[in-house]
Simulated assay, not measured.
Amino acid sequence: MFYTGSYTQQGAPAANPTGKGIGCFQLNSESGAIELLHNTLQRNPSYLVISKDRNHLYAVEEMYESLNPQVHAYKIEKKGQLTLLNTQKINGDYACHLAIIQDKLVVACYVSGSILSYPIMEDGRLAACEQEIKHEGVGLNQKRQEAPHAHMVYPFSNDHIYVVDLTLDMAKAYRIDSRTGQWKKTPALDIKIEAGSGARHMVMDNKEELAFVLSELTGEIFVADLRGGESEIVQKISFVPRAYLGAIGGAAIRMHPSGEYLYASNRGSDTIAIFKVDKGSRKLTVVAHQSTEGKTPRDFNMDPSGEWLIAANQDSSTIAVFEINEIDGTLNLNSLVEVETPVNICWL
């Protein structure tokens, strides 16, 4: 079972947002067929996260603060039905990502370049925001890096997060102060990539020794070795098809559950790049580029078994279901299903 986030109304960063909110789908793990079980109405739920015990789902509303966006806490019921527990105000513009670490929900706001931290109560409800962090600075690309743009929150090491910022070309590290419960900067762990590249999302290997940072603006993955106590960039590799000369719009990056393959999507070429992770050097080698059979693959995600990958084609209003080849990690299209303005895939 998986959920989809979608863009539902004008003002969202989509040409024609017509989504129905949060969709819940059942996947037949043998045939690859999917069935829509139900929709939960919500404005622009562009990113979703599920608690480790699978009892709660949290979703942001991606829009300007003037429209009173909220972060929603849901209880997951039988057959994936969602019951709203409560909401809290988002004091930021264009919340685009969120993550859970310990008893906190941390939200990244793209336009305002800020990070908001909400305590999660025992029953899954959210308390009011207890901390706001604002990034500062400008980048090399004057059009896209004119102000800080926090794009992702990535938890690691039980009490740390990386906040990936497109303008700062960096994954900035923070840890929870055990005494105050507040997030504190940990600059020694910051991951800095090339100026102007536009850090968007990242993923780490299973041992949290390597980080793979995706650049939205230049279409590259930067591999950072963290084993020395500080980050060291050891590889830069493109995820754009060699023959493609159009616009670049790096989007999502995911590690296969086995740790053997890495995948990255590009909204310019409408493709997913497939990489083999070398067991010795742990560097990346390109295996193939797969069309998502649609427009603007803003997100994709693999099921926990690693057998299926589902891509959300935002601007063609489809989700593509791929079977993952266990021998080489390549993708075989199983079906293409109409889903209005999908932008996030979240597995239960």
Rank of each mutant, 00 (worst) to 15 (best):
V213N: 01
K207V: 14
D190K: 05
L105Q: 06
C346H: 06
K79F: 11
K283T: 14
R175I: 07
P304S: 00
P13W: 07
W308R: 00
K143H: 12
N44S: 09
L214F: 01
E323S: 07
V203F: 08
G329T: 03
L98G: 06
D177V: 07
A150Q: 07
A199N: 02
Y162A: 11
T330L: 07
Q81I: 11
N16W: 09
I90F: 09
L214C: 03
A12P: 01
I237L: 02
Y3W: 08
Y118C: 02
Q9M: 14
F25M: 07
S31W: 02
A59G: 11
H135T: 09
G259P: 01
I327M: 12
A288F: 04
K184M: 15
K236D: 00
D315W: 02
T292P: 00
Y244R: 03
E65A: 15
L85E: 05
G259D: 05
D53F: 07
G32N: 01
K283D: 08
N301S: 08
M302F: 00
K89R: 15
F156T: 10
V111K: 15
S46V: 10
E293N: 11
E77C: 12
K236R: 15
W347C: 03
S29D: 13
Y58M: 10
G137L: 09
L226Q: 02
L333S: 00
R254L: 07
L245I: 13
K236C: 09
Q290G: 02
L189D: 15
F2A: 01
V71S: 04
N55M: 14
V164S: 07
A14G: 10
I191D: 01
F222G: 01
R144H: 12
T40S: 11
E326R: 12
D53C: 11
S269N: 05
A171S: 13
Y174P: 08
Y244A: 04
A12S: 14
I115V: 15
E30C: 05
T296L: 13
T218R: 08
E194N: 13
D328N: 14
G329R: 02
M170F: 01
V153R: 09
